[in-house]
């Protein structure tokens, strides 16, 4: 069962590594790190903090751009070039194809994040930073966010009729995900059961990115315990699995 998934994931990684857009995106990251070095000098004795924040945010943004622009075209390009017929004529389940393509894309972006982390950490170490576990936690959370966004982008690329609409909806959900606290507040304050149910439904369907922004409260007086991280992992896996199942279901309805 896993062999076809891994084979598809493998060729997807190779495809992305050769993709010029991908390469340009990571070159842009180097520019971003250099820019962070310059701008952080304006922050007086908060230079290290500025470099940390700009670097983490930059990496997340670059990874988001990478996974978004690659994933919305992931299946569409192969459908339009008809090369998908070759794949589907093999004894491969459609869900295996979807999962393989997704995992390959995520692996390529993950490798990019590792590369960016090395550059970022090296620049931080140069300015006297001492590595700590929260940095790793912030990176893992950023990766979790990217994993969720990748699944969402794939689902929307199959559910919508065009690349621009898939991109626009995905970006809209990215922004909505950062206001999950406000959605919860409105749901709690509402006395209308219909509005409460609707709000809960929207909150459940839209991604909740408040969790993943651990870098925003890295210096907080109280930090979450292991239970919170466990629930975050369940949320990430559950939401990503939901997008992949729904993507596979939509893909299985298509006639080729």
């Amino acid at each position: 069962m896993t062999a076809p998934i891994l084979a598809i994931a493998g060729y997807t990684v190779k495809e992305h590594v050769r993709n010029r857009v991908f390469q340009l995106v990571y070159l842009f990251m180097a520019v971003l790190v250099a820019g962070a070095l310059v701008v952080s000098a304006l922050a007086q004795d908060q230079r290290l903090r500025m470099m940390m924040d700009a670097g983490l945010a930059g990496m997340e943004l670059i990874a988001l751009i990478g996974i978004l622009f690659v994933t919305v075209n992931l299946v569409r390009e192969e459908s339009e070039s008809r090369s998908i017929y070759l794949l589907l004529s093999r004894p491969i389940e459609r869900w295996q194809y979807i999962v393989g393509r997704y995992l390959g894309t995520l692996s390529a972006v993950g490798a990019g994040i590792v590369l960016m982390t090395l550059v970022h950490a090296a620049s931080l170490l140069f300015f006297g930073w001492r590595p700590d576990a929260l940095y790793a936690a912030a990176l893992l959370c950023a990766f979790g966010k990217i994993a969720v966004m990748g699944g969402l982008a794939l689902f929307l690329s199959l559910a919508t009729t065009s690349t621009p609409s898939a991109t626009a909806f995905t970006l809209f959900l990215w922004i909505l995900g950062h206001f999950s606290g406000e959605i919860r507040f409105l749901v709690e304050k509402s006395t209308n059961p219909f509005v409460t149910a609707l709000g809960w439904g929207v909150g459940a369907a839209a991604p909740d990115f408040a969790f993943f922004n651990i870098r925003d409260f890295m210096d907080a007086a109280t930090m979450p315990g292991p239970e919170w991280y466990a629930w975050l992992a369940v949320y990430t896996l559950g939401y990503t699995a939901a997008t992949l199942f729904l993507s596979s279901w939509i893909f299985s309805q298509r006639e080729f």
């Binding site: 869900w95 606290g181 919860r184 507040f185 809960w200 909150g203 459940a204 369907a205 909740d208 408040a210 969790f211 925003d216 409260f217 907080a220 109280t222 979450p224 315990g225 239970e227 919170w228 629930w231 975050l232 369940v234 949320y235 559950g238 939401y239 699995a241 939901a242 997008t243 992949l244 199942f245 729904l246 596979s248 279901w249 299985s252």
Partner: peptide, 29 residues
Amino acid sequence: LLALGLASLLLAAFARDAAYRSFTAPFPG
């Protein structure tokens, strides 16, 4: 696949609520 997708979404919603009960970052609103 549709049923599994919706079930996963419900699991994610449950995990999200459990995480909020466990910890919420104390930012000002």
